[in-house]
Design a binder for these strands. Structure first.
Lengths: 190, 190
DNA sequence: GTCTATAATTTGATAGAC
DNA sequence: GTCTATCAAATTATAGAC
């Protein structure tokens, strides 16, 4: 991947995380990068190609970031708090949505390859959360793991959506605090 | 409001709840209704007018539906279950999103009057939930009311978003069940 | 209220020069 | 790799006849 392609993806991600897939054009994007729209097509033949590449890179980076901030001694509680904090930082640093959360809303009008990547993002999140919960001394059934992971994912996706719309990013911290009052942290130390 | 305008809104709502605001056109809509796009402009001068009218009607109907399915003897638990069930039914009956949840994702590319209506939808939901929680024998501070209402709203919005994307509407029931394991239902009877 | 016709703009995409 | 030039299609919206 050339550095120019990455630069294009960086700007495209900014636009997509603000306006969504349907509301940014190759011309908007080219203007941000400082090239012409025909040059964008050289790197990404179609908009679907670009969209799928964006969602894939976003997923890989998101999961990678999560993996890099857990220590073997961390409690489930601490890790899930950091998971929520990742959403908060993504929202508050530049006021932008989760790329795949936003794409998910548009899923019915997304080219199929892009929609598939968005599904993979959610799957990857569920699997990551299940792995974290599996480390927990409290043994859960497979269904309980799935349910707990789904609960955490949907809660933060919703909080991000509502928090951005209402210009209240703190909504993410609000639900993070309320999450303490659930049975998710059965083995919580403090 | 003429019956034709309502018919236009009905079809527009179907399209918008599938594809979002940016991915449906007056031509798509006119074709569904069986008229020409110029005739749609007669009823709604601009797309922003239509979008705002859609969001406003949706909010009023959503809150009205909620109000019509509570009985004085209902417990907080029962009412919040029905609140979640409203999301489930909206998703499973026709596979479509909450109109304002979808619009919320697009908020940065929405005409300002439409964005304002979407904010009002969330505000109305928070206020409705706070009123329900206030009936509860368990006394809460104003901040606790706000936090609990935000928690419930964001959870179901997120579950709807993820559930539709993954073709798993049951995700809403999953989080509904997990919601029982929180301190939201402090005064729950059963 | 609905139509035809059309304006003005934007969109995703391609051909071909450099 | 990037450009100019251009295309075909779609978009929001308006004017004016019926």
């Amino acid at each position: 991947m050339s550095s120019k392609a990455e630069q294009i993806m960086d700007e495209a991600e900014n636009l997509a995380r603000s306006h969504g897939y349907n509301a940014f054009s190759f011309r908007d994007l080219a203007a941000k990068v400082g090239i012409k729209s025909a040059s964008v097509h050289y790197h990404f033949p179609t908009k679907a190609d670009l969209g799928a590449a964006l969602a894939k890179r976003y997923t890989e980076r998101f999961i990678s970031t999560l993996n890099h901030c857990i220590e073997p001694t961390d409690t489930t509680f601490e890790i899930v708090q950091r998971y929520g904090e990742a959403y908060y930082q993504a929202l508050v640093q530049d006021g932008r949505m989760c790329l795949c959360g936003l794409f998910a809303a548009e899923v019915d009008s997304l080219p199929e390859p892009v929609a598939a990547e968005v599904q993979r993002f959610f799957e990857a999140n569920i699997n990551w959360l299940k792995d974290i919960l599996r480390r927990d001394p409290h043994v859960r059934s497979e269904e309980a793991l799935e349910a707990d992971a789904t609960f955490i994912l949907t809660l933060f996706q919703g909080a991000m959506l509502v928090g951005r719309t209402m210009n209240q990013p703190e909504a993410i911290h609000t639900v993070m605090e309320k999450l303490r009052g659930t049975d998710i942290y059965t083995s919580r130390v403090n």
